[in-house]
Computed example of a mutant assay.
Amino acid sequence: MARRKKVYEGKAKILFEGPEPGTLVQYFKDDATAGNGAKKDVIDGKGVLNNRLSEFFMTGLQSIGVPTHFIKRLNMREQLIRQVEIVPLEVIVRNYAAGSMAKRLGMEEGTLLPRPIVEFSYKDDKLGDPLVPEEYIIAFGWASQQDLDDIIALALRVNDFMSGVMHGVGIKLVDFKIEIGRVWDGEFPRLVVADEISPDSCRLWDIETGAKLDKDVFRRDLGSLTDAYTEVARRLGVLPSNVTHRPKPTLIN
């Protein structure tokens, strides 16, 4: 069987044409990047773990009525998703000061924020994904005011769900980012959570020890990224029993 046509390749995933119109196959790579690609490596098994974790979070969100692009997992590294029109924004939800926010405001990492804060950055690696105010978003037509209201509501619902799930397994959800896509039901667009939700896109700290269980392990050279992601999967009960970390996985058609 011929390999599917590649539609797009990003830093951590590849999108292929799906079996039906309006669908795509999302393949999770083992590549790890930081600093908008300035630091790169291949972490054996990372794609397998992120595929399973993203499936877990997306299906959990769907179960509470939050729409996502996820349809089903196909195998260890691939999932079937709805094709969406991506809103060119990263939607960042922060519960604690960390990373760029802590640096920007001179705050100590781990400071509890008075309430969850939603930020937007413009998706452009060459520009370093700069933070943008809502006024820019509306003026440049990236999203309408109604879209922004709906995106913020979606992001806060994701935060409520994720915070509760993580707290239940002894993990603090410090912050996370999501992407939002538009799907069309006839002439009417609908916003859904897209891309992925995994330790690649979240900051996760052990509640008791403060140990980092996310991509900061790679960013800051704090140890094994695979071990950190495996610990998250183990606590959530989604660690596949037959994982084999192969450096050159074969695409399954």
Rank of each mutant, 00 (worst) to 15 (best):
F16A: 08
R52V: 04
L49W: 04
N36H: 10
L24H: 08
V25N: 02
Q26T: 09
V48P: 00
G60F: 08
L53Q: 01
Q26A: 14
L24K: 11
E17C: 03
D44I: 03
G45E: 05
K13M: 13
A12R: 13
N36W: 05
L61D: 00
F56Q: 07
G37S: 11
R52K: 08
Y8E: 07
G65V: 11
K46Q: 04
R52C: 02
Q62V: 03
I43V: 15
L49G: 01
A12C: 14
N50G: 04
E17I: 11
F56M: 04
E55V: 01
V48S: 02
I14E: 11
Q62R: 09
S54L: 00
L24N: 12
L61Q: 03
G22E: 10
D31F: 11
V48Y: 12
A32F: 04
G22T: 05
K11H: 09
Y27C: 08
V48K: 08
I43Q: 07
F28G: 02
S54C: 01
T33S: 14
G18C: 11
G10S: 13
Y8F: 15
G18M: 09
F56S: 01
M58D: 00
G10F: 15
A38L: 11
G10H: 11
T59M: 09
V66I: 15
G60N: 03
F28K: 02
P19T: 11
L49P: 00
G60C: 04
I14N: 03
V42H: 13
F16S: 10
G10N: 13
D41C: 04
L24S: 10
I14T: 15
V25I: 15
A34G: 14
S63N: 09
K13E: 11
G22I: 06
I64A: 03
L49R: 02
D31I: 10
